[in-house]
Amino acid sequence: MKIYFINSIRFVLLILVQVLILNHFEIFGYVNPYIYPLLIILLPFNINSIQKLFLAFALGICLDFFEDSGGIHTAATLVIAYLRPLFLRNAFGLSYDYQTLKFYDAPFRSRFVYVSLMVLLHHTILFSLEIFSVNHLLYLFEKIVYSSIFSVILILITLNLIRKTSK
């Protein structure tokens, strides 16, 4: 029960922070950091996979409503939610397989790899679907790389901030 409560609060908070604050950021004119994948990143490891997919769908479509962007956030969030076990196994190795993983006990390197993979895939799908044209390949590439850098930094900082308060 507690986990539903925590995630509902995170859901609303992340959307508001994203829409009301971060969407007004214009670093270099076109770089826009995204923090909301944090909800999917922080989900419990043993969550029911169907619940997880519906949560991702709801999160993405809320963002799409705010940004008038069709279904691009929905698609990107669904893909990272679906492929999350793969990234977890890659980043954390055996401790994920044996279900003994504690997120904050893992070395920083593992957490960094996990967050980076999730954000990079999310941004790649998001911006490819948004731009949707081969005429802008260089622009697309720049946007993915720069936005990913800022998003990863932002999410890692937020992860550390949450950890301090919960201890």
Binding site: F57, D68, G70, G71, I72, T74, A75, L78, L129
Partner: peptide, 8 residues
């Protein structure tokens, strides 16, 4: 999601 994207 993809349907919504292509429509948009």
């Amino acid at each position: 999601a993809l349907g919504l994207t292509f429509k948009a």
